[in-house]
């Protein structure tokens, strides 16, 4: 495996619901190599989305450490995490979550607004990202004017526009038809192969998982199987 860019050590995450404490992750340890495409699978409630959120810095662990690149993100404050996410993580959501009042161009530009870039630099990066997902001719369209597959492609452009260390995707094909899902997975493969992006994808779909290099199976908050994907 190439040099680990994500290092998870003895990770615990608990939630309290009323008087009950639910241990979602129980001492999970994991390495993800640089430029690796990893799929997380498991039944509902197994903790895969929680793990993804923790690695992406959207939540803080109850115990254990998470390092991404040089940064120990489990020790960061909320505002430090926000700044770190802007530079180092790109997100792809199942339901795209594009801002409906902004055009495709403006949606992709959003994360760049937080970086010290000139207007021209931003424009160049947005156009490059949209070109990569094949939507330069749709950049002035609002999300409502795009198909599901196109919206997800905009979502991918938004995730990669900042040239992040890591791309996390939560069920990126869950809301798409087979053809669109295939296009999205192909795009993710391109991101990994051509741009050496590290991708962690949560999915329920074995076909989608088969496009990854490695599949991790989670159950009850623990890693039960770590295999190389069949399709690779």
């Amino acid at each position: 495996m190439p040099r680990a860019i994500v290092e998870v050590r003895d990770l615990h995450k608990s939630f309290t619901r009323g008087s009950e404490t639910i241990d979602v992750l129980q001492g999970l340890t994991l390495d993800v190599g640089e430029g690796e495409f990893l799929a997380l699978m498991g039944p509902s409630g197994s903790g895969k989305t929680t793990l993804l959120n923790l690695i992406a810095g959207l939540d803080r662990p109850t115990a254990g450490t998470i390092s991404v690149g040089e940064n120990v993100i489990s020790d960061m404050s909320e505002s430090e995490l926000a700044r770190w996410r802007t530079r180092h993580v790109g997100f792809v959501f199942q339901f795209y979550y594009l801002l409906p009042v902004l055009t495709a161009y403006e949606n992709v530009e959003l994360p760049l607004l937080l970086l010290p870039l000139t207007k021209e630099q931003r424009r160049k990066q947005v156009e490059t990202a949209l070109d990569l997902v094949g939507l330069t001719n749709r950049m002035d369209h609002r999300p409502g004017q795009l198909s599901g597959g196109q919206q997800q492609r905009v979502g991918i452009a938004r995730a990669m526009v900042t040239d992040p260390t890591l791309i996390v995707a939560d069920e990126p094909t869950g809301d798409l038809d087979t053809k669109s899902a295939d296009e999205i997975l192909r795009l993710m493969e391109i991101l990994r192969a051509q741009l050496n992006k590290t991708i962690i994808m949560v999915t329920h779909d074995p076909k989608a998982a088969a496009r990854a290099q490695r599949i991790l199976h989670l159950e009850k908050g623990q890693l039960v199987l770590d295999t190389a994907a069949v399709g690779v």
Binding site: E78, S79, A82, R87, L110
Partner: peptide, 14 residues
């Protein structure tokens, strides 16, 4: 609410 969360995910400060 979800939109606000997405902004935060993208790095927007509270």
């Amino acid at each position: 609410r979800t939109e606000m969360a997405v902004l935060k995910v993208l790095g927007f400060q509270p």
